[in-house]
């Protein structure tokens, strides 16, 4: 049994080391005096100074985060509706059809999505910029939210809903008090996945952005032609550390709250 423990700890350790290896590699070279990822010649903070003096870059980062948060929020709402719709659809064929349609955006290569959204937005007369990027990000994040929420719904036993309804609960009450709490982990997972998709996307954003609005990945890609400057590494390091800090603070603060609640006999976190 002990042996097994060690084995599984080692396995997890390996997974985490591999996951973080490239990130630490990037972070390491962000302090490189030589300004490249080839030879480390000396320690410097120059690249960080460059980041802070580049107002355009910082504005782009802020805009990227705004789009990511807003689009994930809205696509989560839409995705939960979608999952409920699919879950409640009776016919097997309709269900499969909806699911297939849901997944099309996930299989479609980014360029096609980008190009077709561009045509769509120009047809609808939506000005390219913040709104068009936001709409596009919502659009391509919805399917992943659906895929995250749907399994949760399917695990829910139908008797649960029936029981609630037998007790005279209204439709909205059943939804808010029974269904939603049950699928909350799925909703969170969907939100984080949507955030991930949004932060990562380049091709779709490229096509639908305009009028001075830009996101970080579009900027990074178009800088690649000149070779990536270590200030981009420095920026990524900063973003990574800030996110890590937020995750840690968030986690430990909510855990603290959960403990208090548990002691006072409230619902567990």
């Amino acid at each position: 049994m002990v042996k097994k423990r060690i084995g599984s700890t080692l396995f997890l350790l390996c997974v985490f080391v591999v996951l973080y290896l490239p990130i630490f590699y990037l972070m390491f070279y962000s302090f490189n005096k030589a300004g490249n990822m080839t030879h480390f010649t000396g320690f410097t903070f120059d690249w960080y100074k460059e980041v802070f003096s580049d107002k355009r870059l910082i504005a782009i980062v802020v805009d990227t985060v705004i789009v990511a948060l807003l689009s994930s929020l809205l696509s989560t709402v839409l995705g939960v509706f979608g999952a409920l719709a699919i879950y409640l659809t009776k016919g097997r064929h309709y269900k499969n059809m909806l699911l297939s349609l849901n997944n099309i955006l996930m299989v479609s290569p980014d360029v096609i999505i980008g190009a077709s959204f561009l045509i769509l937005f120009t047809l609808l007369g939506i000005k390219l910029g913040f709104i068009s990027v936001l709409l596009a990000h919502i659009a391509f994040s919805v399917p992943i939210v659906v895929l995250m929420v749907l399994p949760k719904l399917q695990e829910m036993s139908p008797t649960l809903i029936d029981a609630a309804r037998d007790l005279g609960a209204k439709r909205l009450d059943v939804l808010l008090k029974v269904v939603i709490p049950f699928i909350t982990p799925g909703i969170f997972a969907g939100f984080f996945m949507a955030l991930t998709y949004s932060l990562d996307d380049f091709a779709v954003t490229f096509f639908v952005t305009g009028n001075g609005f830009s996101t970080l990945s579009v900027e990074i890609y178009s800088r690649a032609r000149q070779g990536i400057s270590m200030s981009v590494n420095a920026l990524s390091t900063l973003i990574f550390l800030i996110t890590l800090a937020i995750v840690l603070v968030y986690y430990f603060s909510t855990r603290g709250m959960g403990k208090v609640k548990q002691l006072s006999g409230g619902e567990d976190a």
Binding site: Y20, M37, F192, T196, F202, S217, S236, I239, F240
Partner: peptide
């Protein structure tokens, strides 16, 4: 586990080229 996905994929690919 999710956190590393928030770093730009192009940068991670460059890191892998180096690694």
């Amino acid at each position: 586990i999710i956190l590393p996905t928030w770093i730009n994929i192009l940068l991670k690919a460059y890191a892998f080229i180096g690694l």
